[in-house]
Write a protein that binds this DNA or RNA. Structure first.
Lengths: 329, 329
DNA sequence: CTGAAAGCGCTTACAG
DNA sequence: CTGAAAGCGCTTACAG
C-alpha cells in the first residue's frame, strides 16, 4: 500500500480510501491510484485489514461437518458456499467423523483464525464447550442436530416425523412385523428416528419388531439384516434409519435374493436410488435447504441480528420407488 | 496477550515465548503464564501472527475444485483435509463449476487471504493468469487436469490409457461398433479420453463408432444414448467417458429395456455401481490418491522444496461388474 | 478532499 | 533467562 501511494504520489491513506471505495477522493487522484494498483499488482491484505478493523470482522466462517466426502455433508457445504460467495465470505471446512474431540479442536483452531461464525453439525452430545467462543463474539449455528447446552439457532430435519411416515407407509402395505435398523443411539438423530418408529407402531397398535442399533457401516448393516432374515419369524419389512444402513440392507436382501419379497424403506437418500431394482423407497432429507437456511441464520447473526435462539425444522419427504411398496405376504 | 502478561506479571514477550514453545523460559514463569492463559481463555490470533512473521506464512491453503458436492471433488477434498489437519494447516475451498472466471476470482480472493498455497482443479484452458500469484510466493499445484502455461506440478489420472483400456475391453467381448459419449472437448480430460478411444480403435483396426460430444448432464446423455440406439445401425456397445454421462446412458438403456443387451463401460465410477443390474463396468479413478499426492507436493513446495515442475499420473483401473461384459450379438 | 499519527496483536532483532 | 523497541499492512480518529 505504501508502494502504491509512492507510485501514485499520494498518502497511503488515500490508497486505503480507494481500495475501500470510501467517498471523498477526487477523480483525478483515484485515477492515479488505480493505475498504480494495476501497475504494481497490488492486492490488499485481508488479514491486516481484519486486525485493524473496529469490529474485527474477517469475512470468514468455519464449517464443521460430519465428513465432507459424504453426500449429505457435501450438499450442505455446496449450499453454504453458494450463500457465502456473493457476500465475499470465505469458508473454512473440516470433518468431525463423529468425534467430539475434533469438534472441540476445530472450533478452537477456527476461532484462532478469527472466523466471524461457526456452522456446526454437532458430533458431541453437548455444545457447552463452545461457550467461550460464543462469548468471544463468534456466532454459532448448529445444523442436522440440535445444539445442546448452548443458546444458538439450529436447523434440523423432522427426524421423528419422517421415521413415523416410513413406518406408516410400510403398515399401509400390510406389514405388521417391521424391523428397525439404526446407528448408535448416542447420536441424537438416530435416537429421534427410533422414537418415531416406536411412536408409529404404538399409534398403529403394532408390535415392536426386531430392533438393531449401533450399525456404523454398510457392512454392519448387511450382517445384521442377513441375521434377521435368517432367524425364525423374520420381519416382512425393514426400516433402515440411515443411508449407510440402507445400503447394507440392500446388499443383504440382494445376496439372499429377497429384494423383491421383503419391503424396505430407508431414511436419507442414497445416490442413484431410482436406478436400483427395486428402486429404494426413502424418507429424503433436504441438505441444500438445511445448509442454506443455516448459513443465512448465521450471516444474519453476524450482521447483528439479535433475538432468542430458534430451531428450524426442515420437512422430510417420503419418495416411493418400489422397495417400500412390496406388500406383506 | 498483554492481558495475559499483566496477569502473570511478566512482559508480553514472555507470553509470546510460551505460546510458541520457544525455549528459554524458566519453568516458574512458564507455569504462571500458562495459568493466566487458561484463566483468561486467551487464544493467540493467527492473523496477527501471520502478519508479523518474517515468512508471512498463514498455515492455510486454498482448494479450488469443480464442485465440492460431486463425489470426485468431495473425495479429493477429504484427502486434502486429512493431510492438512496433522500439520495445523486450514483449508479454504470453493467450487469452480467449469467457469474460468471463478478460477481467476477465487485465486485472487484466496491470494488476498494470504494462503500459502493453492490446489487447483483447473476450469480455465490456461493457467497463465496465475503467474502473479506464483510470483507473489503462493505455491500452486494443479490436479485432475494438467496446468497449462504455468510452471507448476500437476497430478492427473491416466485419462487416455484408461479410455483405451475401456475400448479394448469392449472389443475383447466381440464389439466392433462402439459409441463414444463425452463431455465438451474443450475440457482437457474429455479430449484425452476421446483421444484414447480413437487410439484404441486404430490399434484394433475397428471403425470409429458414433461419437457424441458436449454432453453436460445426465439428461443430455440420456437423450443422446436413446437417439443412437434408435438410429439405423446402432452401436452394440457404449463408452461413456464421464460419470454423469454414464448415469444418463444407464437411464436410456433401462428405458429402452436394453441394459442387458447393449454393453456399457463408464469412465469414472458412480456410487453404488455394483448394486445396479447389471453392475456398471467402469474405469475408476483414485481421487483420494490424487488429492493426497497433490497436497503433499504442495506442502513440500511451501516448505521450500525446489526443482522443476513434475507431472504425476495416477493409474486408473478397469472394474468389471457386468455391463461391460455383455457380448456382441 | 487529503494526510499524519496511533495502534490492532503479534514476531523480530536486539540489549541486558 | 527476560524485556523494551520497532514494525507487519492495514483502519480509525482526528486535524487541516
Amino acid at each position: 500500500m505504501r508502494d502504491v501511494a509512492a507510485r501514485a504520489g499520494v498518502s497511503f491513506k488515500t490508497v486505503s480510501r480507494v481500495v475501500n471505495a470510501e467517498r471523498g477522493v477526487s477523480p483525478a487522484l483515484e485515477q492515479r491510484v488505480r493505475a498504480a494498483i494495476v501497475e504494481l499488482g497490488f492486492r490488499p491484505d485481508a488479514g491486516a485489514r481484519s486486525l485493524r478493523r473496529a469490529d474485527r470482522r474477517s469475512a470468514s466462517i468455519g464449517l464443521l461437518l460430519e465428513d465432507v466426502s459424504n453426500p449429505f455433508s457435501a450438499a450442505v457445504q455446496r449450499a453454504v458456499e453458494d450463500e457465502c460467495v456473493p457476500r465475499d465470505v470465505v469458508v473454512l471446512s473440516a470433518s468431525l467423523d463423529e468425534d467430539p474431540a475434533r469438534e472441540r479442536r476445530f472450533a478452537t483452531v477456527f476461532g484462532a483464525r478469527n472466523v466471524d461464525g461457526l456452522l456446526i453439525a454437532p458430533a458431541a452430545d453437548d455444545q457447552s464447550h463452545l461457550a467461550p467462543e460464543l462469548e468471544a463474539g463468534t456466532r454459532i449455528v448448529c445444523l442436522d442436530r440440535e445444539a445442546v447446552g448452548l443458546p444458538v439457532d439450529s436447523v434440523v430435519s423432522t427426524n421423528a416425523e419422517g421415521a413415523r411416515a416410513a413406518v406408516r407407509h410400510l403398515a399401509a402395505h400390510g406389514h405388521r412385523r417391521i424391523a428397525f435398523l439404526g446407528d448408535r443411539p448416542t447420536i441424537a438423530t438416530a435416537r429421534l428416528r427410533h422414537a418415531g418408529y416406536r411412536a408409529a407402531l404404538d399409534e398403529l397398535g403394532l408390535p415392536v419388531g426386531p430392533v438393531v442399533h449401533d450399525l456404523r457401516s454398510p457392512a454392519d448393516a448387511e450382517l445384521a439384516t442377513a441375521r434377521l432374515l435368517e432367524a425364525p419369524d423374520p420381519p416382512t419389512a425393514v426400516f433402515a434409519a440411515q443411508n449407510l444402513v440402507s445400503i447394507g440392507a440392500i446388499r443383504a436382501l440382494r445376496a439372499l435374493g429377497r429384494q423383491h419379497s421383503v419391503a424396505l424403506v430407508g431414511f436419507d437418500d442414497v445416490p442413484l436410488a431410482d436406478l436400483l431394482a427395486p428402486g429404494l423407497t426413502a424418507v429424503t432429507q433436504d441438505p441444500a435447504t438445511i445448509g442454506r437456511l443455516a448459513v443465512r441464520l448465521l450471516l444474519d447473526r453476524i450482521d447483528g441480528h439479535a433475538g432468542p435462539p430458534v430451531v428450524h425444522r426442515v420437512p422430510t419427504a417420503l419418495v416411493a420407488r418400489g422397495s417400500g411398496e412390496i406388500p406383506a405376504p
